[in-house]
């Protein structure tokens, strides 16, 4: 998608980019109109009120006019700014809020200097190129192995910093097949400029075919997570058919969890990651047993993605009560 030199914006290719473009055009029109107005007013004043024989000194300002116009100006700018603020915040809410129609396609994204690697749910891995279907919500789970990077796809009007030590999520729904540029937007060292990748958007059936053809070099993410789950013997406490000692994981993902200190959090990627690394931070309210030991240092960032993928796959499983 090559932009022509004077295109203001790159071709829009996601379901949220239309709204963002509208806001951009609106705010740019206001900036343009006000800037032009100020420039024209200065030129007009400089000519009309130019200093000349017989007009060496400016007129006195009327205090009443001053108060009225200044306050009016404040009022007008406040109203306009409030409008822009609200539009920006509402649009942002739309960008942040994952649509709840249909199952999202979960993609793991790992950034490291200076490349992007991706993991599909079936275990397919890709480097510097990501294939996704058009029309389906793609939910990204982003982490970094070294410094801060930023996942930026201009055509989707989407940007999310990828911070080491945190697990972030972002989503998009591409509207049209094509190849779109992904760039790292946060300066990350020598080859920052070349930390780019292609997002290849395909028709849904082509994506399925591509996925089937791919030489999958590992098991599906959730299965790999399941295997890791077993290797670490997490089931000893968390599995429902045993005498359960720890809170159940079935149906947990995406639901609110009541904590011991009275607050409540949504069980998202970041919560799960935190609970694995630092189990004593957010203890579930009605849980009485010993707190789980920390797994910090025992599982890598990529392995955490797998564990989270497994727990996510249990989102719709039925919990068996003990």
């Amino acid at each position: 998608m090559i932009a022509k030199p004077f295109d203001l914006l790159p071709a829009a290719a996601s379901t949220t980019s239309g709204a963002v473009d509208l806001l951009i055009i609106l705010v740019f029109s206001i900036i343009g109109a006000v800037s032009l107005g100020v420039l024209v007013a200065m030129v007009v004043f400089a000519v009309r009120y130019r200093r000349r024989p017989g007009h060496l000194t400016g007129a006195e300002h009327s205090s009443g006019v001053m108060w009225r116009t200044e306050l009016l100006w404040c009022g007008v700018t406040m109203v306009v700014f409030l409008g822009l603020f609200l539009l920006g915040a509402l649009g942002f809410g739309r960008i942040e809020q994952l649509p709840d129609d249909g199952e999202p396609l979960d993609i793991g994204v790992t950034a490291k200097r200076w490349m992007w690697s991706f993991q599909h749910p079936n275990g397919q891995r890709e480097l510097s190129r990501l294939h996704v279907p058009a029309g389906r919500v793609v939910r990204l789970h982003l982490t970094s192995e070294d410094v801060i990077h930023s996942f930026y796809v201009p055509a989707f009007r989407l940007k999310q910093d990828v911070v080491p030590g945190w697990l972030r999520t972002a989503w998009f729904r591409a509207t049209a097949p094509g190849t779109y540029a992904l760039a790292c937007a946060e300066y990350c060292g020598s080859e920052h400029a070349r930390m780019r990748a292609d997002i290849v958007v395909m028709e849904a059936h082509n994506y399925d075919r591509w996925l089937a053809q791919g030489d999958v070099d590992g098991p599906p993410l959730a299965a790999a997570g399941r295997r890791l789950f077993e290797r670490l013997d997490c089931g000893a406490c968390h599995e429902s058919h045993l005498r359960r000692r720890a809170p159940p994981l079935e149906g947990l993902y995406g639901r609110p969890v009541a904590l011991r200190d009275g607050s409540s959090v949504i069980a998202d990627d970041e919560y799960l990651r935190r609970s694995i690394l630092r189990p004593d931070a957010d203890v579930v309210a009605d849980y009485q047993g010993d707190v789980m030991p920390s797994y910090a240092g025992l599982v890598s960032d990529e392995e955490l993605l797998l564990l989270v993928a497994y727990i996510r796959s249990l989102a719709h499983a039925e919990g068996v009560s003990p």
Binding site: L23, L84, L87, G88, L158
Partner: peptide, 10 residues
């Protein structure tokens, strides 16, 4: 423009 949340994302 940059203070507008949705616009700043881009």
């Amino acid at each position: 423009a940059l203070a507008m949340l949705a616009v700043d994302v881009h």
